[in-house]
């Protein structure tokens, strides 16, 4: 079954999305596994965003992988300084079967900037998590090799944070 999501439709709260997409394979699998892990949901510009509780992301990835979202695409962070929680982690997972890219989202605060690594689910998340660690300073528990990837090892600071200047000295 191929999903057709209306690009003009915008649904911003969880209840409306669950009602509008009762057959969405990703949402269905997550609800069947643990309804509490799904904190929020959003449908915007034809893309589904599911907010997952921070301590459930590894299992949630395993659940959506087994539900047909097999191809891990991308993983990155967004710094929402000065709001709290400060960091948003976005996981983009492609389903060849449903021809859709699903976005899983985790919100983490600066004080406990640490999430479970999803490398046990997709080994390919390795470099992406290292990049987020390097450029945002978010730690990934259980990552096999959490080291800086772009910046030199002795670098101080995390360049993609919003309080890091674009040019000049800090």
């Amino acid at each position: 079954m191929v999903q057709t999501l209306d690009p003009k439709l915008t649904l911003l709260d969880k209840a409306a999305v669950l009602e509008a997409l009762p057959e969405h394979p990703g949402i269905k699998a997550l609800l069947a596994w643990n309804g509490d892990a799904l904190v929020d949901a959003k449908l915007d510009r034809g893309e589904v965003t599911l907010t997952i509780a921070p301590n459930c992301i590894r299992e949630a990835c395993r659940v959506v992988r087994d539900a047909g979202y097999k191809a891990f695409q991308d993983m990155t962070a967004v710094d929402w300084l000065p709001s709290t929680p400060r960091f948003q982690l976005s996981y983009h997972i492609c389903s060849h079967q449903y021809r859709e890219v699903l976005r899983l989202r985790v919100m983490v605060d600066e004080s406990e900037a640490s999430v479970e690594s999803i490398t046990p689910v997709w080994a390919g998340a390795n470099y992406y998590e290292r990049e987020v660690f390097d450029l945002f300073g978010i730690r990934f528990e259980g990552h096999p090799n959490l080291r800086r990837i772009m910046m030199p090892d002795e670098w101080v600071g995390h360049p993609l944070r919003k309080d890091y200047p674009v040019e000049g000295y800090r």
Binding site: D44, R45, E47, T49, Q73, D74, T76, H92, C94, V101
Partner: peptide, 20 residues
């Protein structure tokens, strides 16, 4: 305001831009 992810197929493979 919003966030989008756009994939295309370039010569090397799948390119995706995530614009917030």
């Amino acid at each position: 305001a919003g966030e989008v992810y756009q994939s295309i197929e370039s010569g090397h493979g799948q390119v995706g831009y995530y614009v917030v």
